[in-house]
C-alpha cells in the first residue's frame, strides 16, 4: 500500500517496475481479485471512454439544457481542413475531450475520471497519445492504472470535489493523472511520471469552479479541452527530462490548501465567476424559465 507519491516511487524502484505495476499489485491485494479480472474491468472503462471520445466527433450532440453541444464535431471538421495552429495531435485530443464532455451533458454514457465534470481529459490524452506512440490496448490499460494510482494519492490527501477544491480538484486532478499515464506509456520513468503530474497540477492551481446555471456544461467542456492540453504538454516537459521543482506530494497538499482557501462562491455553487456575469445570469434564467 502507498499513501504518497514518494512511497509509490520507492516501491517501483525497489522492485524495478513501473508505477502501473505497483498500482495493479495493490488493487489485486485490496480486492482479492486476479490480475486478469482487474485488467478486464479497467478494459471496460477504456471501452466506454473510447466510445464517448468518438461519438461527438461524428454527431451533433446537444446538452439537456441546450447550452452546449456540437463543438467537438466543429473542431474535428476544422482539423480535417488541415490548417491548425497547434497541429493534428493537440487539436484531435481537444476535440476528443469536448466529445466526452458533450456526451456527458447530453446524458450519454461516460466514465467519471475522476469526476463526470472532468470526464474528457483522461480519455482524450490517453487515446491520442496511444495513437501517436502506436501503443496497443494493453498499454492503454496500463496507462489508466498509472493514472488511477496518481488519483488514489490525490483522493487520499486532497479532494476531487469541485465543491471542496474548485475546478483544479477536478480538471487539475484529471490532467495530473493523464499526464503521468502518458509519460509511462511513452516509456518515461516513474519519476518522470510524477514530475508530469506535479507540473500539470501547478499549471491549473487555483482554478475556480463556476458553472453557468450550476450545470456541468459551461465552462466545463472547454476546460476539459484545455485540461487535456495541460496533460499532454506537462507530459512532454517531463519526458524531455525537465523536473518539477516542487515534488508531487507537496503539489497535492498545495492544491488541497488552495482549494479550501477559495471562497464558497467559487466552489461549484454557481454564485461566482462566470456564473454571475450578466450573460451567465441571463442564460440561467433562460434555462430554468425564471
Amino acid at each position: 500500500m502507498y499513501n504518497y507519491g514518494y512511497e509509490m516511487l520507492q516501491l517501483a524502484k525497489e522492485k524495478n517496475v513501473r508505477l502501473c505495476d505497483i498500482v495493479i499489485e495493490n488493487e489485486v491485494k485490496l480486492t482479492e481479485q486476479s490480475v486478469e479480472v482487474v485488467r478486464e474491468k479497467m478494459g471496460r472503462n477504456l471501452d466506454v471512454m473510447m466510445d464517448s471520445a468518438k461519438y461527438g466527433l461524428e454527431n451533433d450532440v446537444k446538452s439537456v439544457s441546450g447550452l452546449i453541444g456540437g463543438d467537438a464535431k466543429k473542431l474535428e471538421e476544422y482539423r480535417k481542413n488541415g490548417k491548425t495552429l497547434c497541429g493534428d495531435v493537440i487539436v484531435k485530443a481537444m476535440a476528443r475531450a469536448l466529445s466526452c464532455s458533450e456526451v456527458n451533458a447530453a446524458m450519454g454514457r461516460i466514465v467519471a475520471a475522476p469526476t463526470a465534470g472532468s470526464c474528457g481529459i483522461m480519455p482524450a490524452a490517453i487515446i491520442t497519445a496511444a495513437e501517436v506512440l502506436g501503443a496497443d490496448r494493453e498499454k492503454m490499460i496500463d496507462a489508466l492504472f498509472t493514472a488511477s494510482g496518481i488519483g488514489q494519492i490525490i483522493g487520499k490527501n486532497a479532494t476531487f470535489a469541485g465543491a471542496e477544491g474548485g475546478c483544479q480538484a477536478e480538471c487539475g486532478a484529471a490532467a495530473a493523472m493523464a499526464a503521468a499515464g502518458i509519460v509511462e506509456m511513452a516509456g518515461g520513468t516513474p519519476e518522470m511520471a510524477l514530475h508530469a503530474a506535479s507540473i500539470a497540477l501547478k499549471n491549473i492551481l487555483g482554478l475556480v469552479c463556476d458553472p453557468i446555471a450550476g450545470l456541468v456544461e459551461a465552462p466545463c467542456a472547454k476546460r476539459n479541452s484545455s485540461g487535456t492540453v495541460n496533460a499532454m504538454t506537462s507530459a512532454e516537459l517531463a519526458l524531455a527530462g525537465i523536473k518539477s521543482i516542487i515534488p508531487f506530494d507537496e503539489m497535492v497538499e498545495t492544491m488541497y490548501r488552495v482549494g479550501k482557501a477559495l471562497p464558497e462562491e467559487l466552489r461549484e455553487t454557481a454564485m461566482g465567476g462566470i456564473a454571475v456575469t450578466p450573460t451567465g445570469i441571463k442564460l440561467r434564467k433562460q434555462i430554468f424559465g425564471e
Binding site: M42, A105, G108, R109, V111, A112, A116, C119, G155
Partner: peptide, 24 residues
C-alpha cells in the same frame, strides 16, 4: 486513510451529467 480501489477513482461508468445529481 481510506484505501481507494482504482475503480473508486476511475468510474463509475455512468450516464451524465453529474455523479451526485444523476448517478447518485
Amino acid at each position: 486513510m481510506k484505501n481507494y480501489s482504482v475503480f473508486d477513482i476511475l468510474g463509475p461508468i455512468m450516464i451524465g451529467p453529474s455523479s451526485s445529481h444523476t448517478a447518485g
